[in-house]
């Protein structure tokens, strides 16, 4: 358990009996979860168990899947995200998301960062914001001389850090990451892991990963999913050393999945 987590145990995101359906098929079964502010939560589980589905229901990205239906409650700072009063657009500027495949905009590096703040009415110093966001995403040194080049000229790892920088520029409270390293080489993965450890001072991070070592290294709490059910959750060290459910142990030790 990291220092920041024990100092500050305020719960920022909580799900209550969350069910997600695709048409008639239920993908998430009654999941309850509590994420503390300033921590890193890792979601693990075999492919198709519903990690992405669950993650996307936390900032209402499932709204764009026409067959998806969410039932249950997600509380963010005490408000239910699925109540009529909540504006999903505003919500997404507070709960950012980084995707599995780097997806920069077909624009310059600079504009990739400024687009989000601009459409949300940010009027401060853009140059400063770009520099700050790129520095926090550990990308500034590599791109500071070519801010106006196309983002597509960057390597995959750099593109993914740009996507993180773009998310940071919105100054969100929570960052959701769906396998952000799965398309990257070990060095870029290392850079992003370091970055996540660094970022959790300011942001709460929920990350999906298939890499057990990665989950063990960077997360404070781990959630193990199987076929849409949350099988076990808790302190990462404990889950990795003495899990209370056999299935969790089997998965972590690579006996299935």
């Amino acid at each position: 358990m990291s220092a920041s987590a024990s100092e500050n145990s305020e719960i920022i995101l909580e799900t209550k009996d969350l069910n997600v359906f695709y048409g008639d098929k239920q993908a998430i079964h009654s999941v309850n979860m509590q994420v503390k502010k300033g921590t890193v939560a890792a979601l693990i589980g075999p492919s198709g168990c519903g990690k992405s589905t669950f993650l996307r229901s936390l900032n209402r990205m499932n709204d764009f899947v026409s067959t998806a239906r969410v039932d249950g409650k997600v509380f963010y700072q005490g408000k239910n995200l699925y109540s009529k009063k909540v504006d999903p657009v505003e919500l997404r500027s507070q709960i950012g998301m980084v995707f599995q495949k780097p997806n920069p905009f077909p624009k310059s590096i600079y504009k990739n960062i400024t687009w989000g703040p601009k459409i949300n009415g940010f009027t401060g110093d853009m140059d400063l914001l770009v520099e700050k966001s790129l520095k926090r995403a550990a990308l500034w040194g590599e791109v500071k001389d070519r801010l106006h080049d196309s983002a597509f000229d960057l390597s995959g790892g750099q593109q993914q850090r740009l996507c993180i920088a773009r998310t940071i520029a919105m100054n969100p409270d929570v960052i959701l990451m769906d396998e952000p390293c799965s398309a990257l080489d070990p060095r870029s993965t290392q850079a992003i892991e370091d970055l996540i450890t660094e970022l959790k001072r300011r942001y709460t991070i929920i990350i999906v990963t298939h890499n057990m070592q990665q989950a063990g290294r960077i997360s404070d709490e781990t959630y193990f999913f199987h076929e849409g059910n949350l099988i076990e959750s808790g302190d990462t060290k404990q889950i990795f050393t003495k899990p209370s459910v056999q299935m969790t142990e089997d998965y972590i030790t690579g006996r299935f999945g």
Partner: peptide
């Protein structure tokens, strides 16, 4: 993925359609 990137930054629908 381009649409999702835009929506995830708090873009409204018309902004996604006309700006991206």
């Amino acid at each position: 993925s381009l649409r999702e990137a835009a929506y995830a930054l708090g873009a409204k629908k018309w902004q996604v359609v006309f700006l991206q």
